[in-house]
Nucleic acid binder design. Structure first.
Lengths: 332, 332
DNA sequence: ATGAAAGCGCTAACAG
DNA sequence: CTGTTAGCGCTTTCAT
């Protein structure tokens, strides 16, 4: 029972009205008489008719689609942001087109160009770094552009996030103030990801300010549990073991802790661990972790709000600092 | 510097050719002479021109968009599947429209109807349960329909996943065979989620087969760390404590374990815990967990493959059992 | 409250 | 290799 393809003309013929009346019955029902409207909508439902978005969009030259480009969705932080965006946008009848660039600027550029073909109502990106071509295309897109996650730099239009350098600096500083002197930094040096670099930068700045010269910085090969464990072993093999290990995110922190414990060290008594991101599971599984929390879901919501405001012709803030909170879980 | 809106006609005029030649230069460059093509593409790039998808789609009545509807993306399992889908689809120039239904059939139905307006190239859903209206609309959509996660039931078109009942049954049975007799089941009874029910069903079947009459089934109020901990406390308060607790997923399992440890119990010596899903972090943080692993990313990939095959006019399997693997981590 | 005409930007099909 | 014609399905605008 292959489906017949109905158009608005078909529905018009069946109900004995003009296509325009069908269009009105669907889009602005209050402009059509009760009787006619009921009959039209009955047929629409019965036939399972849905207006063709391509045609509507062609006429209006603006879709109800928001394009979102993030590195990858199977990363709890990104997923939270996206969920917030979706929740904030759905009630306004906006759909989400999602592209994943794996944090590669060339892929990002391609996705942006592709997405522009949909004449999106808004575009949401991750971070402030984009290729020159991409920036130009975005500026010409003539729709709200939101850059998420980072606010340390110049936004094209709207930026929402936190200063990773500031947060990392504050975390380091507070822990140094607690008396830790010998520390190490464990991170995955994702190429092109400025936020990672900024976190490291904040750490190093704080060290310098505290008059600490020696830096121990260990980078791992990728962002996985096993890579983190290998990093932890590298740290334990150091001639002089640090008392505190800063990790550039919670996955690294949790995995490294586990490895320390496995080797018989007590966490945090023998070796303390600090993370970044405060993913939900961290609190369940690693009560000894001190980490930086920011409101990820909230930043998605704020982005949605800014977009909706703009589409309504209202003004929206150009830069939203979501701030951060240091979550102390040392003592458990 | 608001952007002028170029159409294919503008580009044609600028380069002194017909619109059709511009179209060809972009879509089928091999049909255009080198000289003309180079000049056209130069102008296209210079002006940042991108073909209007609405118009292309209107002509062909088929978009290059795959619509995906899942409960929520901030759930590692769903995110993995989606990532697999995206990775499998991107190289074929298919974009992803993502809607989230929070596992509510009425929202799902609305999203399906909305999405149909895009005349999607394919539709991907979660689970096999949908409203009658939704099923009808999907059957009429005249494109591949993939139902993910579950294969215990009748698919509209293509189903890819595993039998949650079978997997849960096997897990329970193997653990019972190891000698555990006193067990409990801890779960969040998500309304409308048949997969949860099937997992519980598999557990109960295995108990019955083993001649065990008494069931201890604890349900928690939501899927969170704190709810799981409360559940764990309920279990510890039982007059006769179980030796093994089955949890309907790993988040519950990890959180409950943590609570057991906090109360001074040794896991798994005093109380063993089994989960379901094998999320990556579980292995990092809870080496004592026995759980069921299925290839989530792979099922996204398979879905992508099936869709691409169909769009190519080739045949695709209608039912793919991804199977499962019991991951033993008892002894650590 | 309803209808008719025009056209959005593009490509399929056919010429040349 | 390039151009012409027609029309995809809908909404905007202007009648009635």
């Amino acid at each position: 029972m292959a489906h017949e393809k109905y158009t608005i003309v078909d529905i018009a013929r069946i109900t004995g009205v003009s296509p325009m009346t069908v269009s009105r019955a669907i889009n602005r029902p209050e402009l059509v008489s009760d009787k006619t409207r009921d009959e039209i909508l009955r047929v629409v439902r019965q036939k399972g008719f849905v207006l063709n978005n391509a045609a509507r969009m062609l006429v209006s030259d603006r879709s109800r689609v928001v394009a979102v480009i993030i590195p990858r969705i199977n990363n709890p932080a990104n997923a939270d942001v996206f969920q917030g965006l979706s929740d904030g946008l759905e009630e306004h009848g906006l759909s989400l087109l999602l592209g994943m660039d794996k944090a590669q600027p060339d892929i990002e550029e391609k996705l942006i160009m592709d997405v522009l073909g949909w004449r999106p109502a808004a575009i949401v990106l991750t971070g402030l770094d984009h290729s020159e071509t991409a920036r130009m295309a975005l500026r010409n897109a003539n729709c709200p552009i939101v850059e998420l996650a980072d606010i340390d730099g110049e936004a094209i239009d709207i930026s929402i996030g936190l200063s990773h350098r500031t947060a990392s600096h504050a975390l380091t500083r507070e822990l140094l103030d607690k008396g830790y002197r010998k520390t190490a930094y464990l991170y995955f040096d994702a190429p092109q990801n400025r936020r990672i670099t900024e976190r490291l930068g904040g750490y190093r700045d704080a060290l310098k300010e505290a008059g600490i010269k020696r830096e121990t910085i260990i980078s791992v090969s990728d962002l996985s549990v096993s890579a983190a464990r290998a990093g932890a072993r590298q740290i334990m093999a150091l001639k002089s073991r640090p008392r505190l290990v800063f990790c550039s995110n919670d996955l690294l922190a949790i995995s490294a802790s586990q490895e320390f414990k496995r080797a018989g060290l007590r966490v945090p008594e023998d070796i303390a661990v600090a993370g970044f991101e405060d993913i939900e599971l961290a609190s369940a599984v690693h009560p000894a972790l001190t980490t930086v929390r920011t409101n990820l879901y909230g930043s998605g919501m704020f982005a949605a709000d800014a977009i909706v405001k703009r589409l309504d012709g209202r003004r929206a803030r150009r830069r939203i600092d979501m701030g951060y909170e240091i979550v102390w879980r040392e003592s458990t």
